[in-house]
Simulated scan of single mutants.
Amino acid sequence: MAKSQQTFSKSEKEKKRLKKRQDKQKKMDARKADRDEHGPSGIQFAYVDHNGNLTDTPPDPELKVEYELEDIQISVSKKEDLPEEDPVRKGKVSFFDSSKGFGFIIDMENNEKYFTHVSGLIDDIVENDKVSFELERGMRGMNAVKVTKI
């Protein structure tokens, strides 16, 4: 006698599929009955108000703002338009290990911590020294280079 091809797992999956189909049909019937009872509902037309939000009422035409075509810029601002930034920063040495040849400097302006290596030093530094430095992009982020004591 041949063994049945129907396993427990297959029958459970089939039961779930059938239950899901029945739930979906019940939801469809409930929505249809609600629509028949109350009529169609929801926003028939969607408008955009002066703040850019969707609404079901038309926007007030007095709040409409007109823009000239020449005033619209679709680009990045030119480099000469940006304010000139001083590349030399000031900071304080929070940690420096001279035997390993690296340390960290905390920027006084924004309290960011930057890595520094002995190859980027001009003067010898120790912890708590006030220094000036420049930033350079390294493999893991910004590094302090051209480090000098103040």
Rank of each mutant, 00 (worst) to 15 (best):
Met1Thr: 04
Lys3Thr: 12
Lys3Asp: 11
Thr7Arg: 12
Lys10Glu: 14
Ser11Asp: 14
Glu12Val: 15
Leu18Tyr: 10
Lys20Asp: 10
Gln22Leu: 09
Lys24Trp: 03
Lys24Thr: 08
Gln25Asn: 10
Lys26Arg: 13
Asp29Leu: 07
Arg31Asp: 09
Arg31His: 12
Lys32Tyr: 06
Ala33Val: 10
Pro40Arg: 15
Phe45Asn: 11
Tyr47Met: 00
Val48Gly: 01
Asp49His: 04
His50Thr: 08
Asn51Asp: 15
Thr55Ala: 08
Thr55Asn: 11
Thr55Gly: 11
Thr57Glu: 15
Pro58Tyr: 01
Pro59Gly: 06
Pro59Phe: 02
Asp60Cys: 08
Glu66Ile: 10
Glu68Trp: 07
Glu70Gln: 13
Glu70Met: 07
Asp71Gly: 14
Gln73Leu: 13
Val76Gln: 10
Ser77Val: 05
Lys78Ile: 02
Lys78Tyr: 03
Pro83Met: 09
Glu84Arg: 03
Glu84Gln: 08
Asp86Met: 10
Lys90Pro: 09
Ser94His: 06
Phe95Asn: 13
Phe95Ser: 08
Phe96Ser: 00
Ser98Trp: 12
Gly101Cys: 12
Phe104Ser: 01
Glu109Trp: 06
Asn111Ala: 07
Glu112Val: 05
Tyr114Ile: 05
His117Glu: 04
Val118Lys: 12
Ser119Pro: 00
Ser119Ile: 12
Leu121Trp: 00
Ile122Asn: 07
Asp124Arg: 15
Lys130Ala: 09
Leu135Pro: 01
Leu135Gly: 02
Arg140Ile: 04
Gly141Cys: 07
Val145Ser: 03
Thr148Asn: 06
Thr148Pro: 03
Lys149Asp: 01
Ile150Ala: 04
